[in-house]
């Protein structure tokens, strides 16, 4: 099962290594990991997408909570939540394909943020599924380069993750 963990950590040197090290040392999976400081500069928020049985994910949560730098851990997939990922794709856009590429980007609500006479750079935001679908919709030969941020997640409604 896929789980999305939201983690508040002290914004200390080494905090990321402690979390990443925990996953590698205990053989847990990381599908993606994003981290940046929050509105409170003393804290960072991580989103980790992981897979594992209920037992494994329970252990992951407990082990994360045990890290001294970890302030709070929540499994977003246990409740209603929103997840988004950002992708930048550089594609070949020359000749007759140029118009078609623009149309495909529009369909996926992508934005063209850089242009040369042979290429577009498209910015796309959405769930992991949507980004995957966009890449599938493109001709493989047209994709020059992709970069994805990994998933960031937040709970729905008025509930907030606080220290």
């Amino acid at each position: 099962m896929r789980h999305i963990l939201s983690i508040l950590v002290e914004n200390e040197a080494g905090a990321l290594s402690r979390v990443a090290g925990l996953f590698s040392a205990r053989g847990y999976n990381i599908e993606s990991l994003t981290v940046a400081p929050t509105e409170d500069a003393t804290m960072s928020r991580m989103t980790i997408v992981t897979t594992g049985s209920e037992e494994i994910v329970e252990q992951i949560t407990k082990q994360l909570n045990k890290l001294v730098d970890v302030v709070k851990v929540v499994d977003l997939s246990e409740g209603r939540h929103i997840e988004r990922e950002l992708m930048l794709v550089k594609v070949r856009a020359a000749g007759k394909d140029r118009e078609e590429m623009k149309r495909t980007a529009d369909i996926f609500r992508g934005r063209i943020i850089d242009v040369t006479d042979k290429s577009y750079t498209i910015e796309l935001t959405g769930t992991t599924d949507k980004l995957d679908a966009f890449l599938e919709a493109l001709d493989k030969g047209a994709i020059l380069e992709t970069v994805r941020t990994g998933v960031s997640g937040i709970g729905r409604g008025e509930w907030v993750l606080k220290a």
Partner: peptide, 11 residues
């Protein structure tokens, strides 16, 4: 005292 020791190897 350590929650991570509980249900780690045995339910």
């Amino acid at each position: 005292v350590d929650p991570s020791s509980i249900s780690k190897r045995v339910r």
